[in-house]
Amino acid sequence: MLTKRIIPCLDVAEGRVVKGVSFEGLRDAGDPVEVARRYDEKGADELVFLDIKASRENRGTLLSMVERTAREVFIPFTVGGGIRTLEDIRDILRSGADKVGINTAAVQTPDLIDRAARRFGAQCIVISIDVLRRGEGRWEVFTHGGSRPTGRDALDWAREAAQRGAGEILLTSIDADGGRNGYDVEITALVSRAVHVPVVASGGAGTPAHFYDALTRGRADAVLAASLFHFGELDIRTLKQYLAERGIPIRRITHRHTPM
């Protein structure tokens, strides 16, 4: 049975993990490779790196970080932040990322999704959508890191993105993000029903029950969280056990392999 994925998200800038990650015994909590390797050991099913500065000048630093991560980490990972062109996508995939996350540029130039999916395959094109609740049953899409309203209806945009070739939708509720009061299960379920591609719920995780809700009532295929994992408040093993006990299919965490 296909399992539900648990995905830690790491904010990076200039090739370093920012906003703090604290793991016991980690030599360098700012080193994305160390942090990614640790999450792999803990049973994360996938990782997302979000380049929060995403400046042109620092592209090289980001690519070398991706390259180093790909050499050491053997679970899928997505890289997002400031991706605007087919060349940006090509560079990131070539450096070893499995998928790219596109947000603002996709809203501004929806055709980018078609072109990217045709050239690189839909499976590696993740469309990241930040939404804010605007009254009963309505959510608006925001761009530029959740700061700029677009006037676009979230459900409508998710449908269009999937039709154009998005391989996955990463849906973040701006209202819920950082509040730790749970994912916005309502919009997650609406988007998940509206598209035929996997939906990753993001924003608002505070307890194991929140993950459970997003995966059941919210119909999410995967759940993403950041600070809750980074500060050790919730261990991925504990979370997976909680979900498994409640009948959610999850990937069992395996033991360390013996090298050749």
Binding site: L2, T3, D45, Q123, G167, D221
Partner: peptide, 14 residues
Amino acid sequence: PETVGKVPHMGWNS
């Protein structure tokens, strides 16, 4: 077939 659910089949399966 579309009846299986989402296609592509993406993620971890046993």
